[in-house]
Each structure stands twice: as C-alpha cells, then as structure tokens.
C-alpha cells in the first residue's frame, strides 16, 4: 500500500516538475509547480512529517506561488518563443549526472540498506507520534540560535524587497 502511494506521488512529482521546465507559458509553469507542491506535501505525510506537509502547503502553495503569480500578472509576460541556446550545455551537464546517479543508487541500494540496519540497531530517539510537538521542542531547544538567525534573514529579505521594488529611489537619482 505504501509503495502504491509512493509510486503515485513520485510519478506525479516527476511529471509536474518536467512540465514546469517544459511549458512555455509562465502561468502554466507556476500552476504545475502548485500541483507538484501538493504532491510533495503528500509524500511528506507518508514519511510521518505531518507538520511539514501542512507548512509546505501553507507557505509554498499559499504564499510563494501566489507571489509568483502576482508578478507574472503584473509584468504581463509573453511566452518564450524558443528555449535558450544553452540547451546543449544542459544536456552535457545533466545526462551523465543522471546516468551516474542512477547507476550508483541501483548498485549501492544493498549497501544503503545494510548501513541503515546497523544504524537502527543502536539506541536512538524514535520520532514520537505527535510530530508538531516534537518539532517544536527540537526547534526551541537544540536549534534555538538558527531559529533566531532565520528571523534575521526574513527581516533582511523584507527590507531588501521594499528597497528594491520601491519606485521613488531609482527615479530620484536620475
């Protein structure tokens, strides 16, 4: 049953991520990215990360993608006539990497499984059933300093976005 779910989510993620790159209209690209975000959230649920699935839908699908769609609508972009001339470089970079990763992973699957068994035999903290509670405790105890730094990152991004997109600053100088 879990393999059925994984197959569905993985297939949809791969198809929609290829559509993001292949579709020429940016609005259609953004909408297929939306479908991909929902399926990644489903994959997170099968991996017992319910809090992250909710955050994925709220932040990615709810905030980031809406921001993209706003900008696409504001700028009134026409679709690309053709792809960039760098597609040969892209093929040269990616096709060997892809084949290599497939070979490594298919060859190393047994080694990975034995490694996991040795890891899981040792004592470890099991992920509790209440995922949100556990993440909150970890976030505010072990990772408290990175959490504060993340708030600083958000502040800098907010100020930077306002300064960059404000119309008066560039026009006053000219």
């Amino acid at each position: 049953m879990s393999q059925l779910f994984f197959g569905y989510f993985a297939g949809m993620i791969v198809i929609t991520s290829i559509l993001v790159v292949a579709l020429r209209n940016p609005v259609y690209s953004a909408l297929s990215l939306l479908v991909m975000f929902f399926h990644v959230a489903g994959l997170f649920i099968t991996l017992h990360a319910e809090f992250l699935a909710a955050v994925q839908i709220i932040v990615y699908a709810g905030a980031i993608l809406v921001l993209y769609l706003f900008v696409v609508m504001i700028l009134n972009v026409t679709q690309d006539d053709r792809y960039h001339s760098q597609w040969r470089i892209a093929g040269v970079v990616c096709i060997p990497l892809f084949i290599e990763s497939l070979l490594l992973l298919s060859g190393g699957a047994g080694a990975v499984n034995t490694g996991s068994r040795s890891l899981q035999s040792g004592p470890y903290d099991a992920i509790p059933t209440d995922n949100t509670l556990a993440i909150g405790k970890t976030l505010f105890s072990t990772y408290l300093f990175p959490f504060e730094v993340a708030s600083l990152v958000l502040l800098v991004a907010m100020i930077g976005a306002i300064v960059l997109a404000k119309k008066d600053i560039g026009q006053r100088e000219t």
């Binding site: 900008v71 690309d80 792809y83 960039h84 760098q86 597609w87």
Partner: peptide, 10 residues
C-alpha cells in the same frame, strides 16, 4: 530549467 529557460521567472 535554469540552463535552458529564457524567462527569468521560469
């Protein structure tokens, strides 16, 4: 996608 698209939003 980063290498072949011309649209900066894409």
């Amino acid at each position: 996608g980063v290498l072949i698209r011309r649209n900066i939003i894409a």
